[in-house]
């Protein structure tokens, strides 16, 4: 034989490893399911968030949502007002009336950046502007809290105040 047996064995081993690896990658695997919610500034970027706003004037932000559940889902972002120490947890949403909401359907691995404009009427210090992510249970039509939320503390002042 022109090729030495040992050389052929080594070459076959390399080819075998490469092919088994390729076959393993070919078989579809389940995805690591997660949902993401992010708060962005007026320009749709991280940073430059407002800290002081004037009551009655609109606050402009963006909310980033991503679906990585392995299927298309209907999501709802709900804006609420809280305060320092009164924000949602991973299991319970904030017990407060929604001041803004937006519903959308996202495919797997799809994301959306939603412009938000809310007007805060009441003055206050450390007002928490909270955004919660909810998902629709298509079987019974109920909204389920995903445990994902963002918040931004704002000082809401009167117009003309220093």
């Amino acid at each position: 034989m022109i090729i030495d047996d040992e050389v052929l064995a080594v070459l076959t081993a390399i080819v075998t490893v490469a092919c088994v690896l390729a076959a393993a990658l070919t078989v579809p695997r389940g995805v690591e399911p997660f949902l993401a919610l992010g708060l962005l500034d007026e320009k749709g970027k991280i940073g430059d968030y407002p800290t002081r706003v004037i009551a009655g004037e609109p606050v402009k932000l963006h909310v980033f949502v991503m679906n990585h559940l392995g299927k298309a889902v209907m999501l709802k972002v709900v804006g609420k007002l809280g305060s320092r120490g009164n924000i949602p947890t991973n299991s319970t949403p904030l017990n407060s009336t929604p001041i803004w909401s937006y519903e959308l359907i996202l495919e797997h691995n799809q994301n959306a950046t939603i412009p938000v404009q809310v007007t805060l009427q009441k003055e206050g210090l450390n007002v928490a502007l909270v955004f919660e992510l909810w998902t629709l249970n298509a079987t019974d039509g109920t909204w389920v809290y995903t445990g994902r939320w963002n918040h931004l503390y704002l000082n809401v002042t009167k117009a003309g105040a220093p």
């Binding site: 022109i2 090729i3 052929l8 070459l11 076959t12 080819v15 092919c19 088994v20 076959a23 070919t26």
Partner: peptide
């Protein structure tokens, strides 16, 4: 089919490569 083709490559390589090389 993809997996079968990929897994058939090593024995095919072992059989045909020395002959093709020769």
């Amino acid at each position: 089919s993809r997996v079968a083709i990929l897994l058939a490559i090593p024995p095919a390589f072992y059989y045909f490569f020395p002959r093709l090389y020769a």
